[in-house]
Design a protein around this nucleic acid. Structure first.
Length: 502
RNA sequence: GGGCCUUUAGCUCAGUCGGUAGAGCAACGGACUUUUAAUCCGUGGGUCGUCGGUUCGAUCCCGACAGGGCCCA
């Protein structure tokens, strides 16, 4: 390689024309004694504050107030003696800046025209006025570069491809209103959830993400390694077993907003890392969990939309208000098949049903899994509003207490909204003897090659042996709650979803 | 894991039945003191995902690989 290709100069030569132009403008600013990246620029008001304070001005008037504002240049129209630009700040608020020859003089006007590109962050100082067309504007007396953009912005009027939106969220946030909205909606929902828990006297805790054993859910974990102990560790798939230890310790109402990691598929509704809330309530049962969940969802909807009727981004409305319908898992499958399916229905009979309805059976499925698959295949799409599905097979729910009346069924519900599972809740299994048997059965499944089976956590069993109160447990996907509130896909609700390297 | 589709300018996309490519916006030069995706005149910009193969010649045909999407398991 020639020496000249190593010193960086030729790398610049290889850049697209527009990036070279912007680098040259950066150099020109410096040569002109102006900082392309100053440590501070004048700013007396946000664009939003200007709009709030001066938004009432009539057409073509001067406010008499001089302010310094900052923003990203998203439109720029240079004419001979009067130049216009539109500035936008992070929440999407925009304000026009005007550069009039008789206000700023030829030198400042020319510098504005020649140094500033779309995408640059600038500070503009001048009087707040309205234009002859009534547009609220800052009529510049001076301006300063706040940060020179070396890359051009994408076209505002053509939607970015989904891939670019996800890979370059920083650009997406600049150009797409929905991206800005969802980014601010999520923390608003978090605040609402915390406030809902606080009003019910739940305590927020943080439990380990690095775990020696993975448990609390059926899922394949990510493996990692701790050098200090030279041993394998897992990223958690659920916080459940630690939160239950809290219950044993007397933290009677507890919740965690937790990031979980599951080493499984990644598609439009599954992300390898995802946020959940999990909560436990001593001396409650599954029905208390349902009440809590409905409260969390409805209070989140109300805090965002001012109503339990939520407006999706595609314009569709979804009513999350009132009480929600409840259906029995086994009854609804029986109804759909026109033949009774119960916990005691033989495995062979279930396989027969599955084949009849065109469901291809994975031989690894156990009895209860087959019932759940039948349910998902036949029933889910018939739901209209939010729906609690009540009563699950015991063999797929190793952490749940048996139903107090129905043998072979556990006190577990799933909440479905818009066709996907939003939350689940149990009357928690607290009997350490039964729990040990269930976990041993899981360990045997694991030994037989079921990669989703839970490991036997002796310390968790020791905790149960100390005594855990009867408890209601609830888990809800935060990303999915955002999906239910907005109608968006999971990759839209997560700011930076995992993507393969380019 | 299997099948199908896709990758071309900064962005969004056309296109070439095989002869190295276009549009809109963006950029560059010029005109314009009220623009709102301004308008008008002029100009430049591309390893057509990567690597191989076929061919006189490949962005196009074939294969492998990589990224993305949809469907199935």
């Amino acid at each position: 390689m020639a020496e000249s290709e190593l010193n960086g100069a030729s790398e610049v030569d290889d850049l697209p024309e527009q990036m070279q132009v912007r680098r040259q403008k950066r150099d020109s600013l410096l040569a002109n004694g102006q900082e392309p990246y100053p440590v501070a620029v004048p700013r007396t008001m946000s664009l939003k504050a200007v709009r709030e304070k001066f938004g009432h001005l009539e057409v073509d008037v001067k406010s008499g107030a001089t302010e310094s504002v900052t923003g990203r240049v998203i439109f720029k129209r240079d004419t001979g003696k009067l130049a216009f630009a539109t500035l936008r700040e992070g929440d999407g608020t925009e304000l026009q800046a005007m550069f009039s020859l008789d206000q700023v003089g030829a030198e400042i006007l020319e510098a504005w025209k020649s140094f500033v590109d779309l995408g640059d962050l600038v500070s503009v100082t001048g009087e707040i006025i309205t234009s002859k067309r009534g547009e609220l504007s800052v009529l510049a007396t001076s301006w300063q570069m706040a940060a020179k953009a070396l890359r051009p912005l994408p076209v505002e009027h053509k939607p970015l491809s989904e891939e670019t939106r996800v890979r370059q969220r920083y650009v997406d946030l600049i150009v797409r209103p929905e991206a800005r909205t969802i980014a601010r909606l999520r923390p608003a929902v978090m605040t609402s959830l915390r406030s809902s828990f606080a009003s019910r006297e739940f305590v927020e805790v943080e439990t380990p993400m690095l775990q020696v054993l993975h448990g609390g859910a059926a899922a394949r974990p990510f493996k990692t390694h701790i050098n200090a102990y030279d041993m394998e560790l897992f990223l958690r798939i659920a916080p459940e077993l630690y939160l239950k230890r809290c219950l044993v310790g007397g933290i009677e109402r507890v919740f965690e907003i937790n990031r979980n990691f599951r080493n499984e598929g990644a598609d439009s509704s599954h992300s390898p890392e995802f946020a959940m809330i999990e909560s436990y309530q001593a001396y409650g049962d599954w029905r208390d969990g349902m009440e809590l969940t409905r409260g969390l969802v409805q209070e989140a909807a109300s805090s965002i939309f001012g109503s339990t009727v939520v407006k999706h981004f595609d314009g569709r409305e979804s009513n999350l208000g009132g009480t929600w319908q409840e259906i029995s898992l086994f009854d609804s499958v029986s109804q759909a098949l026109g033949e009774e399916v119960a916990p005691h229905t033989s495995y062979e009979k279930l396989v027969e049903h599955a084949k009849k309805v065109g469901l291809s059976v994975d031989p690894k499925w156990i009895h209860g899994k087959l019932v759940e698959e039948l349910f998902e295949h036949l029933v889910i799409e018939t739901f209209t509003g939010p729906t609690f599905v009540m009563g699950y097979p015991v063999d797929t729910s190793p952490l749940v207490r048996s139903h107090r009346e129905l043998p072979g069924v556990v006190e577990k519900w799933d909440l479905y909204v818009d066709g996907f599972e939003l939350a689940t809740g149990y009357s928690e299994l607290v009997d350490p003897v039964i729990q040990r048997d269930r976990l041993l059965a899981q360990a045997q499944l694991g030994a037989k090659g079921d990669l989703e089976a839970m490991a036997l956590d002796e310390d968790f069993l020791r905790a149960l042996e100390v005594g855990m109160p009867p408890t209601a447990g609830v888990g809800m996907g935060v990303d999915r709650l955002l999906m239910a509130l907005t109608g968006l896909g999971i990759r839209e609700t997560i700011l930076f979803p995992l993507v393969k390297p380019e």
